[in-house]
């Protein structure tokens, strides 16, 4: 394949080689670094590399979105959560409940890689064109072309994504709020086991004070309840803790 790479223009080849190297290094870093903060930073590296490759392939708009949304928002969100839960939490590497898991994972992953590379050389079974139109239109930028496709052919899916995002926001808000105290609601079961310890008594008042509105509180009630119950079960049944 080397001759093909060399057949390309030098800047292109150089850009590809560097960006690919950055991506792979970043990916390996995500997987291999022990500290999750390092993993997150390595993920940014990969995302930048991929963004460069997007530019290289005339997808300037997606590259910008990749940097803004992924590197700017999602990874920051990851870092927030890492900080929130405590940076110093370590994986308990000593106790591996599934001894074969790691080697099986490695084997299967490499097998899948080999198969994909094999397929990359072969005759692809797919390849039918969609109806979205050409990617490169003379006189129009990539943003224009992509936007036109989004707002014409893909208008309905595009609108659906708005609903998806709203649901995600509501879901996140519901998940993030603290569960109410069991005593505050009639239809919740009365505390019987040791599962409902001092925790709910301790922060129940604060949790309610933080709730923004009554309707959200009622919306989220079942999830909080379920989680609390599952906690109770594991605390009772999980001897390793």
């Amino acid at each position: 394949m080397d001759h093909l790479l060399l057949a390309a223009t030098v800047p292109d080849a150089l850009t590809f080689a560097v960006a690919a190297a950055i991506s792979v290094v970043g990916a390996l870093g995500v997987v291999l670094s022990r500290n999750p903060v390092h993993s997150a930073l390595m993920l940014i590296l990969t995302l930048f590399g991929v963004a460069v490759l997007f530019v290289e392939q005339d997808a300037q708009f997606l590259a910008a979105v990749q940097v803004i949304v992924y590197a700017g928002a999602i990874v920051v969100l990851f870092l927030f959560v890492i900080m929130l839960l405590g940076v110093d939490r370590q994986e308990a590497l000593r106790s591996e409940p599934m001894p074969a898991q790691r080697w099986l994972a490695l084997g299967l992953g490499l097998l899948a890689l080999a198969e994909v590379i094999l397929l990359a050389k072969g005759h692809w079974p797919t390849g039918a064109h969609s109806v979205a139109g050409k990617a490169r239109v003379a006189g129009h930028s990539n943003t224009f072309v992509l936007g036109r496709a989004l707002f014409t052919t893909y208008l309905f899916p595009f609108e659906i994504t708005s609903a998806l995002l709203v649901i995600a926001v509501v879901g996140a808000a519901v998940l993030a709020r603290r569960p109410r105290r069991p005593e505050s609601s009639l239809d919740e079961p009365t505390p019987e086991g040791p599962a409902f310890g001092g925790e709910s008594l301790g922060d129940g008042g604060a949790g309610r004070a933080l709730e923004p509105g009554g309707e959200q509180a009622t919306d989220g009630e079942p999830i909080g309840e379920v989680l609390e119950e599952s906690e109770g079960v594991t605390v009772v049944g999980g001897p390793e803790e």
């Binding site: 991506s23 792979v24 990916a27 390996l28 995500v30 997987v31 999750p36 993993s39 997150a40 990969t46 991929v50 990851f78 959560v81 890492i82 839960l85 939490r89 994986e91 308990a92 590497l93 898991q101 790691r102 099986l104 994972a105 490695l106 299967l108 992953g109 490499l110 899948a112 890689l113 994909v116 590379i117 990359a120």
Partner: peptide, 19 residues
């Protein structure tokens, strides 16, 4: 494919949920 495999292997191997 390489990136995908690395991600997949990492998903299977790592135990930190965030990672």
């Amino acid at each position: 494919a390489v990136l995908f495999s690395i991600g997949g292997i990492g998903l299977l191997v790592r135990r930190n949920v965030l990672v």
